[in-house]
């Protein structure tokens, strides 16, 4: 794996499968009474959040702590965008504190990329969501969840997601989750169909290598996975769609549409959901819904990412404990 995880495109298929398989082993920890490994003892992970995201932050925090890393949470609301302390100065401060990994959430697309490539820090940078760009660990946990349910020979033993059909529905234009998923799922061999009204597709979507559709009902019967994206009601104020009701009628997943799905098809959502907008309560709480499991899997996948980035175990005995003296490149 590369030293940083900035984009789902940074991962080869082997990298991604290594993360999923490592996450599978680490996930079993969740069922044990003592949920802690000494793998990252003495290493420091900084959660640098320029945007509020309690669920992503605590997921990374739980992941780092279960690997015995020291965790520093740095909530830096108001970046240089609002003339507060600059990203650079914040980064230099963290570097001075001896961070081994910086998990960064930022409202500006590319901010983690800047952090990793501007010479401000030497630590590994993990993108925990940047603007409308990417959210690679979300894509990994989504792929992990799909893989557990749909891996070729049933749960847990499948090789990858080859040939599986994934429909991602909603505000693709503003979604970092959609971008990272489109990249990673293609790497893993899945067939991705993005579904949205034309206003919520970015220009150039035809170059993404995915199918696109404006018609949710045509896509649902063929899908193995339906992933609903959060759609903010406020988007209607910028004329992306006329009203929230019209959006729900055309692109929301309700009980009636759910009945069109194949028996094995699962329903996903990266959260937080807008119930009644893109998804109804009966779908979100149905047996098909793996939304709560996504959260559990998120911790395991983030453990795997931190472990693989920080232990430097690439191709060696990556399930063993990381040598404590090892330093970053």
């Amino acid at each position: 794996m590369k030293r940083h995880l900035l984009s789902a495109a940074d991962l080869t298929r082997d990298d991604a499968m290594l993360v999923l398989k490592t996450a599978e082993e680490l996930r079993s920890l969740a069922d044990r009474p003592i949920k802690k490994l000494p793998a990252l003892r003495g290493r420091t992970v900084v959660n640098l959040f320029f945007e509020d995201s309690t669920r992503t932050r605590i997921s990374f925090e739980a992941a780092a702590k279960r690997l015995s890393a020291d965790v520093i949470n740095f909530s830096a609301k108001g970046s240089s965008l609002s003339k507060g302390e600059s990203l650079k100065d914040t980064a230099l401060t963290l570097e001075a504190m001896g961070a081994d990994a910086v998990v960064v959430r930022h409202g500006a697309s590319g901010a983690p990329h800047r952090l990793a490539h501007s010479g401000w820090v030497r630590s590994s940078v993990v993108n925990a969501g940047d603007g409308t760009h990417e959210h690679p660990t979300q894509a990994l946990l989504d792929a992990f969840t799909m893989w557990r349910h749909l891996g070729k020979d049933g749960a847990r033993s499948g090789d990858n997601l080859e040939g599986r059909r994934v429909a991602i529905v909603g505000d693709v234009l503003h979604s970092r989750v959609a971008r990272s998923n489109a990249l990673l799922l293609q790497t893993l061999g899945a067939e991705v169909t993005l579904v949205a009204p034309p206003t919520l597709f970015p220009v150039g979507i035809d170059t993404w290598g995915v199918e696109t559709s404006y018609d949710l009902d045509a896509v649902l019967p063929k899908a193995d996975v339906v992933m609903m994206l959060r759609v903010q009601r406020e988007r209607m104020n910028a004329s992306f769609f006329p009203t929230a009701r019209e959006y729900s009628r055309r692109y929301g997943l309700d009980g009636k549409r759910m009945r069109a799905l194949q028996d094995h098809t699962i329903v996903m959502h990266p959260g937080p959901m807008v119930r009644g907008m893109e998804i109804t309560a009966d779908v979100a709480d149905s047996d098909r819904s793996v939304i709560v499991e996504q959260v559990t899997n998120g911790v395991a996948v983030r453990m795997a990412v931190l472990y693989l980035l920080l232990s430097g175990a690439n191709g060696s005995d990556h399930h063993g404990e990381a040598p404590e003296s090892e330093t970053d490149a």
Binding site: G131, H133, V203, G204, I205, T207
Partner: peptide, 18 residues
């Protein structure tokens, strides 16, 4: 708007300047 609107602005998640 942040950059030329095109294939790249969509991928980079930067608001396009058409």
């Amino acid at each position: 708007a942040q950059m030329n609107e095109g294939e790249l602005s969509g991928r980079l998640g930067l608001t396009g300047w058409p």
